[in-house]
Design a protein around this nucleic acid. Structure first.
Lengths: 230, 230
DNA sequence: TGTACATCAGTGAACGCGCGTTCACTGATGTAC
DNA sequence: TGTACATCAGTGAACGCGCGTTCACTGATGTAC
């Protein structure tokens, strides 16, 4: 039974998780700027200095929350990729993926704001965040790749001035894909989050009412813009 | 000479402007959450309580900054509408409009974040902001309307489930326009800000390098998605 | 034109508050022999 | 299996800080007669 690992090791894992959970709760209540170590400790019945056994500073706690957020939205996206009803209907898979991301965002608006909203002032994201941050983009690309392999991806027109950049993006993020499609994918990626951010941040208030249907329509059009399903 | 208006009235206007300018400076340095009345007063050589002669509370100062931000980006947008080289090239006008908004955003990232980023926690936008907030959307619609009047607007396909919503949106925001175009316009509006937000908030860091050309390409495609220029 | 009174910008002290972080400490858990 | 020592989670007090807002006040500007 080598899985016991001692009371200390297990306690450390549990307390670390409890701190992050409470921090997330306060994030949802007050927003990132007002997240306070003292308040987290208070709520947990600890003394504030005790948190320094787990996180060297407030910023490190924030970083952990950011990494977790990227990871949960990333795995939500990847999860939506798997159970596709018809793996050959690339538009439907694209829409399902977009809907999974939107649902996560609506369920966790403050964690969403943490990673896709205004940067937290005075805080600069460390290296640890770049891997998890890429997962959503990778999922979007994978659908386009499947479509290409099935001969059902039509590259959109591409301005000459963007050709070098398109080749660079392709080499770096989606080798083998048509460069024009890669550019369109990057644009669609940001536009997807434009749709979600406007909903989550309240810009659609008193504008769009039928949000589900509007989102479905818009991301379907986005899929066509990328060249899926032609 | 009735334009003298007394030293008091003129001083009030000047001091109010100075407070907002200094607040904007701090916004750029620290972000909205850290904007502090005391720091603004300190920098202006006033005592903090003196600001209460001009703004009843910190939130009211924030509201003033938000309204100003919507107004400046709105007039930047409207300004780009006017000097169109060829008023019949609706795609070019659309692109110019989008570029004007992007340039304002890049030049004033914190004011941009104030209105298009995560909502400031604990702050709820008052009525005064809705008028100024609509100016950008109205400018986008006006281009589409010109295109339609010239017979150069092709409504995109529209899902049946969205038909009622499309009619409502049309009646409210763009009477007389094809409902499918209005839905596409609302989507394009949010997607435009997705492109800008990703650039301003750093998501394109180490991803997109040729930002000008990428933006031009993407908003041109956005124009086509709305049905301009067919 | 001169005077009496009202208005209002700005002062300075104070209120009560919460914050991040450091430090010397206690006592429980883990480890090596 | 038992003992001696090392590790480490958590304590409690303290540091120095900045914040928004209120309040009674002074003195300059504006207004009515």
């Amino acid at each position: 039974m080598s899985n016991i690992r001692g009371a200390r090791a297990r306690a450390r894992i549990e307390v670390t998780a409890a701190i992050k959970d409470e921090a997330r709760r306060q994030l949802a209540a007050e927003g990132a700027a007002k997240l306070s170590l003292r308040a987290v400790a208070r709520e947990l019945g600890m003394v504030s200095s005790a948190l320094y056994r787990y996180f060297p500073s407030r910023d490190d706690l924030l970083t952990a929350l950011i990494v977790d957020a990227y990871d949960t939205v990333g795995s939500a996206a990847e999860g939506a990729l798997a159970p596709a009803p018809d793996p050959r209907d690339h538009v439907a898979r694209w829409v399902a993926l977009c809907e999974a991301i939107r649902e996560w965002a609506l369920a966790h608006p403050h964690e969403y704001a943490l990673i896709y909203g205004s940067p937290v002032p005075g805080y600069t994201a460390p290296r640890d965040t770049v891997g998890p941050a890429a997962r959503v983009g990778t999922a979007l690309i994978s659908i386009a790749r499947d479509a290409r392999d099935a001969g059902r991806l039509t590259p959109p027109p591409l301005a000459d001035e963007l050709r070098p950049e398109a080749l660079r993006l392709t080499a770096e993020f989606a080798p083998g894909m048509p460069p024009a499609s890669v550019v369109a994918l990057v644009a669609a990626w940001s536009q997807l989050f434009g749709l979600i951010s406007f909903e989550v941040f309240g810009q659609f208030h008193r504008v769009v009412e039928e949000r589900d249907a509007f989102f479905r329509q818009s991301v379907t059009r986005l899929a066509h813009g990328v060249g899926l399903g032609h």
